[in-house]
Design a protein around this nucleic acid. Structure first.
Length: 352
DNA sequence: TCTGGGGTCCTAGGACCC
DNA sequence: TCTGGGGTCCTAGGACCC
């Protein structure tokens, strides 16, 4: 049985929602992300709308850099960027609405992130019919939420995913011949190939997927281990991974970057206590009542990042124990050196 | 003035058990 | 002349994704 898989990716999701909610933003460059604080803010761009992308702004970029690009644009008589803090509760509601639309058309849906979904359309039996279904989904999302999305359709999740991002925004692409489709694409479009893997492959003269296809399984295994074997398959458009309808929660964590690097212990303790309380609250809300492992992270001024974790012999259930042990782990990390601290984080795992 | 916050998965060495 | 060997858990770090 040949599968037909679709991947739906919302276009500039957070920014598009904000545009809809604030008609006065229409047609203007918008950045959802950290507060730029006149060029002194800490954090990055979460989503830039397409107008802001024309200024060279993109997600992941330091917010200070986006702010500078906006100032430059203003000095050239162009419109300044509107900076907005993200409202995840709001985006979560829209995400649920999108999911409910997709579920009207497909029984098997995977929520890959707040703005990405995989779904199975094998029952349609042909790419033609699968495409018609996706056109209807796009139309319904447009009518109900006034948002556009890009959809890729192919024989598996890998191809569907690459296809959905091939011609954003507002696209719908069917890939009938994965081999040919992949040939001239950059290795970077393969999920799991990030900056490090790209650099290693580039150094071997591998830039496009057709170059990658020339490396043997053995060579890739030597370079990347288990991931290398997966890469061998991906380069050929092969991917048998299933649609996962329910993702189980494996860990719950939070982190906070301070406005200014500090070593003021009373302040750092207070922040750690807040992390404990928030995480514990979410842990309870998710219906868990036990955890076994605590991991504390400290990022120093120079960005060096250390973690320390501790696993209890028996599962733990109370907030006081979390506070006590996270403080103990934090202290041992802080006492490793005298550097100012930029960020602290806390995560609990082995939930039950 | 660089570099968020929420996650998952993998690796590698050492401990420990049978 | 010998220092097994496989499985699993814990810990720290790193790559990657949105």
């Amino acid at each position: 049985m040949k599968r037909i898989i679709a991947h739906l990716d919302m276009d500039a999701f957070f920014a598009a929602i904000e545009e809809n909610d604030n008609p006065e933003f229409k047609g203007k460059p918008i950045v959802v992300g950290a507060d730029p604080k006149n060029g002194k803010g800490r954090g990055v761009v979460s989503t830039a709308n397409y107008k802001a992308r024309e200024y060279g702004i993109h997600s992941g970029m330091p917010i200070t850099e986006a702010w500078k690009l906006s100032e430059n644009a203003k000095s050239q008589g162009k419109e300044g960027v509107i900076f907005i803090k993200p409202n995840f509760e709001k985006y979560e509601l829209v995400s649920h609405s999108i999911l409910s639309i997709i579920k009207k058309y497909s029984q098997f849906v995977e929520v890959a992130s707040i703005d990405e979904f995989y779904f199975d359309l094998s029952f349609a039996k042909s790419y033609k019919k699968a495409k018609d279904i996706c056109l209807k989904i796009k139309k319904e999302i447009k009518e109900r939420e006034r948002l556009t999305c890009s959809i890729g359709i192919g024989p598996n999740k890998l191809i569907a995913k690459i296809a959905s991002s091939y011609k954003k925004p507002d696209s719908l692409i069917v890939i009938k011949n994965p081999q040919k489709f992949l040939e001239n694409l950059s290795i970077r479009v393969i999920p799991g190939v990030g900056p490090k893997t790209e650099e290693i492959l580039n150094s071997l003269g591998v830039f496009k997927i057709k170059d990658l296809q020339k490396l043997s399984k053995g060579e890739l295994y030597k370079l990347f281990g288990k991931f290398g074997l997966a890469l061998y398959e991906k380069a050929r458009g092969i991917d048998e991974s299933p649609i996962i309808e329910e993702h189980e929660i494996k860990s719950i964590g939070e982190q906070i970057t301070f406005e200014k690097d500090t070593r003021k212990l009373s302040y750092i303790y207070d922040e750690l206590e807040k992390l404990c309380k928030n995480i514990y609250k979410r842990f309870k809300e998710e219906g868990f009542d036990k955890f076994k492992t605590i991991t504390v992270t400290v990022r120093f001024k120079d960005f060096e990042t250390k973690t320390k974790s501790f696993t209890f012999k028996k599962p733990i259930a109370n907030l006081e124990t979390l506070k006590l042990h996270s403080l103990r782990l934090l202290m041992s990390l802080i006492n490793q050196n005298k550097k100012l601290i930029r960020m602290i984080g806390l995560r609990i795992e082995k939930l039950g």
